[in-house]
């Protein structure tokens, strides 16, 4: 089955972020196709490379980056939600004059528009949402 995943909550505060990761991993292991994973609302924080959780805890951002590398996953962070919350890529850093090195979108994630969310609703057999 062709699935898409929408994540609406940030890491650590809400289990939604963990459950979404576990679900996505399990779906891929079962041989399902994951068309795209979209991060919205506070979910955009899952894509910050600056998170530094304690070493004896899971690293949610890193888990996603590794899963993306392994399965060529398309991880998309909503640009409007990301800009509000300070998640920027190189292009946005430059455009808003935030200073060199300020880009913090994590490896394997890309920033794009809400059109990507609508498209995955259209293209997928199921859109599965993780939020509160």
């Amino acid at each position: 089955m062709k699935l898409s995943i929408l994540i609406n909550e940030g890491p650590y505060t809400h289990q939604a972020a963990d459950t979404a990761y576990q679900f996505t991993k399990a779906a891929l292991d079962k041989g399902h196709e994951v068309f795209r994973v979209f991060f919205y609302n506070d979910g955009v924080y899952n894509g910050s490379r600056l998170t530094v959780p304690p070493q004896d805890d899971r690293n949610i951002q890193k888990n996603w980056s590794e899963l993306a590398a392994k399965h060529k996953l398309d991880l998309v962070v909503c640009i409007a939600a990301a800009q509000r919350r300070g998640i920027l890529d190189e292009g946005e850093v430059k455009r808003h004059g935030k200073g060199e090195g300020a880009a913090n979108v994590a490896p394997g994630f890309r920033i794009s528009g809400l059109g990507q969310l609508i498209e995955m609703g259209i293209q997928s057999d199921r859109l599965v949402i993780f939020g509160d």
Binding site: I79, Q83, E92, I111, S112, G113, L114, G115, Q116, I118
Partner: peptide, 18 residues
């Protein structure tokens, strides 16, 4: 507008509406 500039994918190809 950031949204317009980066709205990503073009509207879906002609296909039954969902």
């Amino acid at each position: 507008m950031a949204e317009a500039a980066k709205s990503g994918a073009a509207p879906a190809p002609a296909k039954a509406k969902k």
